[in-house]
């Protein structure tokens, strides 16, 4: 034990013995560990090294390969959680199981990827454990003098960032925004423990009774992801390629006024001052030059433009610009994403 830590104990600041370790809730998609989960794992690793504690990953899966992979990505310990009723994903089961485990095993910090499910489970667990939660964090760090987790989150569309901490309660729970931390490297030589734990979540009141694919919204004004085609696509056939691409990404298709006038698409999907106005999260523009008429109608969180001419105004405004032939790139993207 180092001098600092001794001093900390002296000052009563060291965490009470029973709360130790950083937990990471791992999400799977089609059996594979998602990138946001790995990013959280990487972040947890850094924090654990600062705190001199261990990283433990929890995953609802019985596959051993997944657990081994988690070890290679930085987990000191992996719990494969078995709960019942088995089968379909159920928010309530997951939340109750994790609550129970956390109550018994008392992690110091509990991290989740900030996804739809991750944030909901984190919220339920935090309320059940009567402790603090900060969601959508873009940064996590440790205040070593007080041994607390500093959680940074953007508010008001990122106009302001706040650093929040949970001073007294444990575990300190946070969800990490995807893309805010680097995905760690897979270290073949890393070793760690893997164990399976069974939890009885108690009474489960909700029941999944059906599943369906959600149809892509045709309502452009409400769409979260919009693929926007302009005259740069050149032909109706190329515009159809854009449609196919959109299908693959669950995006809604829009066209510029100029493209509609060229006959590439129908009137009712026009986005522009003379058409519909949109506020999507992601807007991918293929062959859109970016006139005032075009761009004044678009408020996208992320605007990506693919176009041939570097001088096009859209490149002044886009977050990411790709200089190249839009139809060709769209076509390749369709091929590669099937």
């Amino acid at each position: 034990m180092g001098f600092e830590e001794l001093l900390a104990i002296y000052e009563g600041k060291l965490v009470k013995e029973e709360h130790r370790n950083i937990w990471v809730s791992i999400e799977l998609k089609r059996g594979e560990i998602t990138d946001p989960s790995l990013e959280v794992l990487g972040k947890a690793r850094q924090l654990a090294d600062m705190l001199g504690t261990r990283v433990e990953a929890l995953v609802f899966s019985s596959k051993r390969e997944v657990a081994e992979k988690l070890v290679r990505y930085g987990s000191d310990n992996v719990y494969i959680v078995k709960t019942f009723p088995q089968g379909k994903f159920n928010l309530e089961t997951y939340a109750k199981s994790l609550t129970k485990l956390a109550k018994e095993r008392k992690p110091e910090i509990f991290l989740f990827p900030h996804t739809y499910t991750g944030s909901a489970i984190a919220a339920l667990v935090a309320a059940n454990l009567e402790t603090g939660l900060v969601t959508n964090c873009v940064d996590l760090s440790i205040d070593t003098s007080e041994r607390v987790l500093l959680q940074t989150k953007p508010i008001y569309n990122g106009k302001l960032n706040v650093v929040i901490y949970t001073p007294e309660r444990k575990p300190q729970i946070a969800t990490l925004k995807p893309g805010s931390a680097a995905k760690p490297f897979e270290d073949e030589l890393r070793s760690g423990g893997i164990s399976t734990i069974e939890v009885d979540p108690g009474e489960i009141k909700t029941k999944v009774i059906g599943e369906e694919k959600v149809k892509i919204k045709r309502d452009i004004e409400e769409a979260e992801i919009v693929f926007w085609g302009g005259t740069g696509l050149g032909s109706k056939e190329n515009f159809d390629v854009l449609r196919r691409l959109a299908e693959k990404f669950g995006a809604t298709v829009a066209a510029t006024r100029e493209a509609v006038e060229m006959g590439l698409a129908e009137e009712d999907i026009t986005v522009g001052l003379t058409g519909k106005r949109i506020k999507p999260r992601v807007c991918l523009a293929f062959g859109v030059k970016g006139s005032y008429e075009n761009l004044a109608a678009v408020k996208a969180k992320h605007l990506i433009a693919v176009n041939e001419d570097e001088e096009d105004p859209i490149f002044k405004i886009a977050d990411l610009g790709v200089i190249g032939n839009p139809s060709k790139i769209a076509e390749l993207m369709v091929k590669k994403s099937s």
């Binding site: 603090g132 900060v134 953007p154 106009k159 302001l160 960032n161 706040v162 929040i164 949970t166 309660r169």
Partner: peptide, 10 residues
């Protein structure tokens, strides 16, 4: 249960 430590503009 939580406290704000500081706010900043990025």
């Amino acid at each position: 249960v939580t406290k704000v430590r500081r706010q900043f503009i990025f």
